[in-house]
Design a protein around this nucleic acid. Structure first.
Length: 615
RNA sequence: GCCCCGGUAGCUCAGCUGGAUAGAGCAGCGGACUUCUAAUCCGCAGGUCGUUGGUUCGAAUCCAACCCGGGGUGCCA
C-alpha cells in the first residue's frame, strides 16, 4: 500500500474496473481519483464512470454501480455501496480513520514520504543570467528566484542538478565597456577601488557614444531639416561610428587574448560577479561562482559549432547569413551574421551541446523571460536537428523554456523607478527588510534587537520570494510591498507564522516538562474534522512535490503550503494541543504539529524560502 | 500582416489538465482573544469565467471566429 491514499485507491479502483469490464484493455483504464471538492461528501472521489460509459456506450450511473459492485476498499475506506454513487456517476469515498493514521504514520520519516526516483536524471537549470557591468535589477529577480526554486525542486526529488548562470559577459556590448574602462584608466583612474555603480555609468556612457542616430538622420534627409542641425547630427554620427569602431577593434583584441584587454575584462567580471553573487546570497538563492558558465566560456566553441553545421549541411547560406531552417517555424534560426559575427543563438547552440553532450543533461530548463520564447523555439529545434541535444548515452535531452512574465509596478507597466530606470534588486531587498523590521518590531515588541534583525531579514526575503513564486509563472504580476508584507492572507509571512506556531508549542511543552522523546511514536488519533483535514493535506505532499517539480511550477508548491498552513491554523484553533483532554490526544496532536512543521520547513526550503524559529 | 501569451468577484490571484453549487486573499459587513504567538480562526456578502458559436451526459478548461491588453517577428541580447 502506498503512502498516498490516492494511489491506493487508484489501485483498488483499477482492479474493480478490470473485473467489472473484463474486455477493457488494461491501458484503457483510467480511475480519475481526485480529492473531493466537497469534504461533506467524502475525502476522495472517483470520476471514472462517465468517460468509461461514453467509451462503452452505456449509462454512466450503471457503469458506476458496476464498478462499486466489484470494488474492494476494505482496510482503506468506509464501505462503498450503491448509495455512494452521486450525480451523473461520481463515486464518493471516505477513508477509514485507521487507514488515514496508518498512512500518515508511514509518511512520518525523514524523507516525508518522498521516494527516490527510479531513474535519477541529470538536470541543467539555466538561471540568473546577469550581464557584466550592470547591477542586478528586477529583470533578474524572477530568473534567479524561479530558477533556484526549480533547481531545488529537482534536487529534492532526488535528481542531480547542475545550475548554469549564463552570464552575459561577452560580445560587442562588453567590448564597449572594456574599451571605455581602458580609456578611463589611461587618463589616470586607478581601478583598484572601482565600484559596480561606476562601471554601470561607464557602460551607459559607452552605449550612448556608440549609438548612431541613423534613424533621425534618415528622417531629416527625407523631410528636409535645418542644414545646421543636420550638420551637427552628422558629426555626432561620425563620433558614434568612431566609438563603435574602437569597440569593435577592442573586441578583436579581447578575442585574441590581448593582455591589457583581458585584464580589464577580468576586472569588470570580478566586480560584477562579486556584487551579483552577494545579492543572490541575500536572496537565499543558491547561485555561486561554480554555477557561472558565461557566454565567454563558449567563445572557443562557436566556430566549431558553425563548421560542424556547415559541414553536415544542417545550416545553409541565405542572403549572406548562415541559418538553420526547421520544420514548423517560418523564421529560421540565424547562427552567423552576414559580417561573419556570431549571435546569441550560436552561443545557445554551443550551450546545449555542452549541457547535453558533455554534462550529460537529460533535461535542460531555461528560466528566462517569456519574450525569448520564439528564440528558444528556434534554438531548441535547431539543436535537435543538429543532434546537439544528445546525451553521451544517446538519449535525447528534453529542453524546456520555463518562461515567466514581467514584474509590473502599481501602474501596470514594467516596474521602474520614478526616473524611469530599472529598479536595483539590492534596493528592493533593502526596502523589504526595512519595512519588515518595522512590522516585526510592532507585532512582537518582546524580541530584542539582535533577535529582530535576522527575523526581519528572513520575513522580508520570504515575502519577496513568495510573491514572485506564488503566481503562475507565465503571467505578469504586480509588485506591491504593501501586499506581500501585509502579513495577512496568502503571503510568505503567513507561512512563516504558521511554522512559528508549530515550533512555539514544542517550546511550551518542554517548559511544561512533557516528555517530547515519545512524541514521534505517539499513535495518531484523527477524530476531529480539523484533524482529518490536516492529515489529508499532509498526505498530499509527496505527490504535490513531484508534480510541482517536474512541471516547473513552484506556484503549486506555494498553493499547497498555503493550504497546509490554513489547515493547520484551523486545527490549531479548534483542537487544543497541550490542553487536550487526554495524554494520548496531547501526544497525537503534538505529533501532528511536528509533522506539519517538518513539511512546512521542507516545502519552504524546497522553493528557497528562509524560515525562522520565532517571530 | 503573421506568431506567442494573457483576459475569472471592486482589487490581487488560484482553479490539480473535461466533472457536482467556479475558489482564496485583500477591501466591506458580523462573530471568536485574562492566547498553545489573534501576523489567527469562523461566518455573511460579492461572478453572464472577454464575446459569439461549436464539440458532449458535462466546458473557465477542448475547437473556431472575433474583441481588448502585452510581447515577439531574419542578421541586438
Amino acid at each position: 500500500m502506498s503512502i498516498d491514499p490516492a494511489e491506493t485507491l487508484d489501485a483498488r479502483f483499477r482492479a474493480a474496473i478490470a473485473s467489472a469490464f473484463p474486455d477493457l484493455p488494461a491501458e484503457a483504464i483510467e480511475t480519475h481519483i481526485a480529492a473531493n471538492r466537497q469534504p461533506k461528501l467524502g475525502d476522495f472521489q472517483c470520476n471514472a464512470a462517465m468517460p468509461l460509459a461514453k467509451r462503452l456506450g452505456k449509462n454512466p450511473r450503471e457503469v458506476a454501480s458496476a464498478i462499486v459492485e466489484h470494488l474492494d476498499v476494505s482496510g482503506v475506506a468506509e464501505p462503498i455501496g450503491p448509495g455512494a454513487v452521486a450525480g451523473p456517476g461520481f463515486i464518493n469515498i471516505r477513508l477509514l480513520g485507521d487507514a488515514l493514521s496508518e498512512s500518515l504514520t508511514r509518511m512520518d520519516t525523514d524523507a516525508l514520504g518522498v521516494e527516490a526516483p527510479e531513474h535519477p536524471m541529470t538536470v541543467v537549470v539555466d538561471l540568473c543570467g546577469v550581464n557584466l557591468a550592470k547591477q542586478m535589477h528586477v529583470g533578474h529577480l524572477r530568473s534567479t528566484v524561479i530558477g533556484d526554486a526549480v533547481a531545488r525542486l529537482y534536487e529534492r526529488l532526488g535528481h542531480k542538478v547542475i545550475r548554469q548562470n549564463h552570464v552575459g559577459d561577452w560580445g560587442l556590448p562588453i567590448a564597449m565597456v572594456v574599451q571605455k574602462l581602458i580609456e578611463v584608466q589611461q587618463r589616470g583612474r586607478d581601478l583598484s577601488d572601482l565600484s559596480l555603480d561606476e562601471l554601470n555609468t561607464l557602460y551607459r556612457a559607452a552605449q550612448a557614444e556608440c549609438k548612431a542616430e541613423k534613424a533621425a538622420l534618415a528622417l531629416i534627409a527625407k523631410v528636409g531639416g535645418h542644414p545646421k542641425a543636420e550638420a551637427e547630427l552628422e558629426m555626432r554620427i561620425a563620433d558614434a561610428n568612431e566609438s563603435m569602431e574602437r569597440a569593435k577593434r577592442r573586441l578583436v583584441k579581447l578575442q585574441s587574448g590581448d593582455t591589457e584587454s583581458v585584464a580589464a575584462w577580468q576586472r569588470v567580471y570580478d566586480i560584477t560577479m562579486g556584487a551579483c553573487l552577494a545579492t543572490c546570497a541575500r536572496l537565499h538563492a543558491n547561485v555561486t561562482e561554480d554555477a557561472s558558465a558565461g557566454e565567454s566560456s563558449y567563445r572557443d566553441e562557436l566556430s566549431d559549432v558553425i563548421d560542424d553545421l556547415v559541414r553536415r549541411g544542417i545550416a545553409e547560406e541565405d542572403d549572406g547569413a548562415l541559418v538553420v531552417r526547421v520544420d514548423g517555424l517560418k523564421e529560421p534560426c540565424i547562427v552567423r551574421k552576414r559580417d561573419g559575427g556570431y549571435l546569441y543563438a550560436t552561443t545557445d547552440l554551443a550551450a546545449i551541446r555542452r549541457r547535453a553532450g558533455t554534462l550529460g543533461a537529460e533535461r535542460v530548463v531555461y528560466c528566462v523571460d517569456a519574450r525569448q520564447s520564439l528564440h528558444f523555439k528556434q534554438v531548441f529545434a535547431a539543436a535537435h536537428k543538429a543532434g546537439y541535444d544528445r546525451t553521451p548515452q544517446g538519449k535525447t535531452a528534453e529542453l524546456f523554456h520555463a518562461a515567466f512574465g514581467n514584474v509590473l509596478g502599481e501602474d501596470n507597466k514594467p516596474l521602474k523607478t520614478r526616473s524611469g530606470e530599472n529598479v536595483k534588486l539590492s534596493d528592493l531587498i533593502d526596502e523589504a527588510i526595512e519595512r519588515a523590521a518595522k512590522t516585526v518590531a510592532e507585532k512582537n515588541p518582546d524580541l530584542d534587537e539582535t533577535e529582530r534583525a535576522p527575523i526581519a531579514e528572513a520575513v522580508a526575503i520570504a515575502a519577496l520570494k513568495y510573491a514572485d513564486l506564488s503566481t503562475d509563472r507565465i503571467k505578469d504580476y504586480v509588485f506591491s510591498f504593501d501586499r506581500m508584507l501585509a502579513f495577512e492572507g496568502d503571503t510568505g509571512p503567513y507561512l512563516l507564522y504558521a511554522l512559528v506556531r508549530t515550533k512555539s508549542i514544542f517550546r511550551k511543552a518542554a517548559d511544561a516538562g512533557m516528555d517530547l522523546a515519545k512524541v514521534g511514536d505517539a499513535p495518531l488519533l484523527l477524530e476531529e474534522p480539523a484533524e482529518r483535514a490536516l492529515a489529508l493535506a499532509l498526505l498530499r505532499y509527496p505527490g504535490l512535490l513531484k508534480a510541482a517539480g517536474e512541471n516547473h511550477e513552484p506556484n503549486r508548491m506555494c498553493a499547497y503550503l498555503y493550504g497546509l498552513a490554513g489547515a493547520f491554523s484551523s486545527f490549531f484553533d479548534q483542537c487544543p494541543v497541550l490542553k487536550a483532554d487526554t495524554e494520548a490526544h496531547k501526544m497525537s496532536r503534538l505529533r501532528l504539529c511536528g509533522l506539519t512543521a517538518r513539511v512546512l520547513e521542507d516545502g519552504l526550503a524546497t522553493i528557497g524560502i528562509p524560515t525562522v524559529e520565532r517571530m
